[in-house]
Write a protein that binds this DNA or RNA. Structure first.
Lengths: 337, 337
DNA sequence: TTGTACGCGTTATCAG
DNA sequence: CTGATAACGCGTACAA
C-alpha cells in the first residue's frame, strides 16, 4: 500500500565525491564554480552529479552561509488584480533564476504587523524581499526598518529612493484625463483610491496635473476604497449632483460599480456621463458599456523587480529600467460631448 | 550611512543554555516540549529565551530533521479569482500555525513540469503540499508521484481519495440549472470549462443531472477556456442559432463575455436569453445586467485545506469537513420565460 | 589544483 | 530528569 512512499536516501555531496573519486570539497568547488579547478576533474564531478541526480541540500547551505536562495514577498494587498499578476510573475522569474519564493500577507498595515512580517521573513533567512506595499505607511516602515537584506518595493512612487519600481501611474492618469478633455469634457470628477495608497496619490496627481494644464477647474476628489461596491454607492450619490460630464475612477472595479450606480439612477453612460477606469482588468473589455481604461503590464513589472533584486543580492550592477509605459485603451464608456 | 544595516549576532541555543545554566540539550528539550523536564528548569530556560529574544534557527533544524515548517503550494492556475483567494487564505492560516508558505506556479501541466515543481518543493523540504490542481492530469500525476510528504488537493472532485477537498461544484451547478428550469426555461445551453478541468466536469455533470431530473433534453456543451474573451466569441456564434432561451456558463468571466457577445448581436439579456454564471466574482453584482451566479467560499476552502494538511503532518486525527455549501445568488441576468 | 579539519545550530542517542 | 557526544550536509580556512 505504501510501497512508494518511503523516501530513498538523498545523495549528499560526499556520495558525489566518492563516485567522482575526489574529495567532497572539490565537489563543493565545482558547485560554486570556483575558478581553480581542472576542467577534466570538473567534468568528472559533473558526471557524477548527473548520474546520482544530486541536488545540494538547501538547509545545510543556509545553515553555513546564513543565507538562502529564497526571496520573500511582502504583500499588503487583499487580492487585487494588479499585485496578484505581479506576484505570479515574480514567482516565475525567481524560479527561473533558481530562487524560491515565500509569501507573507499583511493582514493589517500597522507598524507592528509589518515588523512581524519582516521578522518572519528574516527568520526564513530570505536573501531579499519584494514588497508590494502600496500604502504609504508600509513603505515608510519598510524603509525605516533596515532589514539587513536588499529589498525592492513595487507599486510605489518611482524615484523615492532607488529601490522602488512601478509603472508610471502619473502619466497613465494624465493620459486618461487628457483623453476626456480631448473629447470635449470640462467638468471632470475624480473618484480616487484610499488616502494611504501611493498609487491613489499618483493617479490623483495625474488627474490634477492634466486638469491644470488644460486650465480646467478641478473638483475635490472623492475618496473610495477600490471596491466595485463603493463605486456603486458613489454612483448613487453623484447622481444627485449633476455638475459634471465625466468621471475618472482610479481603478476599473470602482469604475464598473460606478457605472452600475449611474445606471440604477437613470444616468446613461456614455450619453449622459463618460466614465474611465484604470488597470484594464480582464472584464473591462466586456462590461456594458465597455470600459475605457489604462493598461498596465503587471507581469513585466514583476519580472523587473526580480531582476533588480537579484542584482542587488549578487552585488552586481543594478539594472535601471525606464518607467513602464501605460497604454490607453479607448472603449465605449467615454464619448465626446 | 549604514549604521543600522549591520546585523547583530543572533543568539543560538547555546547562549540560552549558558544564561539558564543548563546544557544546550536541555534547552532543546524545552523547545520541543519534551515530557521529562523539571518545571523549574523549564521556566528558567524560558526566561533566558525571552531575555535573549531567542528564535530557533530554521535551517539548522531543517538540516537535522530534514523537515521544515514550510508548506508548499503547487498552483496550476493562471490567476483566476477562486484559487487566488484560496491561496491568500492558505497563507494566512498557515502563518497562524507557525508555518510559512512557498508557492510554485506551474507554467504548463505536462507531467515533466509537474514533476519538476514537486521536486523543487521536495528540495525545499516542505513538510506538506497544498495542490491547487484543477486539471485532471495534474491530479493524476500528483497522486502517482508518491511525494513522500502529505498533500491536500484543492478544487478537485471530492471523495476521490480522501486527500482532496472542494466546494460542492456539482450541487452548485444543479442549483443554478434548477433555478433556470424553475423560471420556465426548457432549452438550456451549457458553456463548459476546458475538458481537462475537474471543476468543469463537475459543473457540467450538475447541469446534465438537473436537466435529466427535469426530463429536459440537453444540448452538447460548448467547451470554453474560462476567459471572458471566449465567452464573447461564443456569444457571437450562438447568436446565429436561437434554439435556446438560457445559458449556464461554467464561470462568471465567460458569462460576462457571453452577455457582451449577445449584446453586440442584438440579443437582450435577460429578455431574449437568460444567462447565469458560477463563482460570484466581485464584479458579478455590478455588470449589466447583474449576474445570477453561484457563490463559493474560497477563503474557507483554503482554511480547511490547511487544517487537513497540518493534521496529517502532525499525525493527528484528520478533520472531516462536509462539502462547502454553494449559494445561489439570484440577480437580473436570469428571468422567467 | 586538491584535500583535511573544523564549525554552522539543532536534534537524536545513549549514559548517568 | 539531565548532560555528553555524535550526527545532519555544506562552506571556509588552511595545508599540501
Amino acid at each position: 500500500m505504501a510501497e512508494s512512499s518511503e523516501r530513498a536516501r538523498v545523495p549528499s555531496i560526499r556520495d558525489v565525491a566518492r563516485l567522482a573519486g575526489v574529495s567532497h570539497q572539490t565537489v563543493s568547488r565545482v558547485l560554486n564554480d570556483h575558478p581553480s579547478i581542472r576542467p577534466e576533474t570538473k567534468s568528472r564531478v559533473l558526471d557524477a552529479i548527473s548520474v546520482l541526480d544530486y541536488r545540494p541540500n538547501r538547509a545545510a547551505r543556509a545553515l553555513v552561509t546564513s543565507r538562502t536562495t529564497n526571496i520573500g514577498i511582502l504583500s499588503a494587498t487583499v487580492g487585487e488584480f494588479g499585485p496578484t499578476a505581479s506576484i505570479a510573475s515574480i514567482e516565475d522569474a525567481a524560479r527561473a533564476e533558481g530562487y524560491s519564493v515565500t509569501t507573507v500577507n499583511l493582514p493589517e498595515t500597522t507598524p507592528e504587523a509589518i515588523g512581524e512580517a519582516i521578522r518572519q521573513l528574516a527568520r526564513e533567512q530570505v536573501s531579499g524581499i519584494v514588497a508590494l506595499a502600496p500604502q504609504v505607511r508600509v513603505f515608510n516602515v519598510l524603509r525605516g526598518m533596515a532589514i539587513g537584506v536588499p529589498y525592492v518595493s513595487l507599486q510605489t512612487a518611482s524615484g523615492s529612493d532607488g529601490v522602488t519600481h512601478s509603472a508610471d501611474q502619473l502619466t497613465g492618469a494624465r493620459l486618461v484625463t487628457q483623453h476626456l478633455i480631448a473629447l470635449g469634457h470640462t467638468e471632470i470628477l475624480h473618484l480616487a483610491g484610499p488616502q494611504d495608497w501611493i498609487e491613489a496619490e499618483s493617479r490623483m496627481r495625474g488627474y490634477l496635473d492634466a486638469m491644470r494644464d488644460a486650465d480646467l477647474t478641478t473638483f475635490p476628489p472623492i475618496r473610495g476604497d477600490w471596491t466595485a461596491d463603493f463605486g456603486y454607492f458613489a454612483g448613487g450619490e453623484l447622481a444627485r449632483r449633476r455638475d459634471f460630464t465625466a468621471v475618472f475612477a482610479a481603478n476599473d472595479l470602482m469604475a464598473i460599480g460606478l457605472m452600475h450606480g449611474f445606471r440604477d439612477a437613470g444616468i446613461d453612460v456614455p450619453r449622459d456621463v463618460s466614465v474611465v477606469g484604470f488597470d484594464d482588468i480582464p472584464v473591462a473589455a466586456h462590461v456594458c458599456p465597455t470600459l475605457t481604461t489604462v493598461h498596465q503590464d503587471f507581469t513585466e513589472l514583476g519580472r523587473r523587480a526580480v531582476a533588480i533584486l537579484l542584482a542587488e543580492i549578487r552585488g552586481e550592477q543594478v539594472p535601471v529600467f525606464g518607467a513602464l509605459d501605460p497604454i490607453l485603451r479607448t472603449r465605449e464608456s467615454s464619448s465626446s460631448r
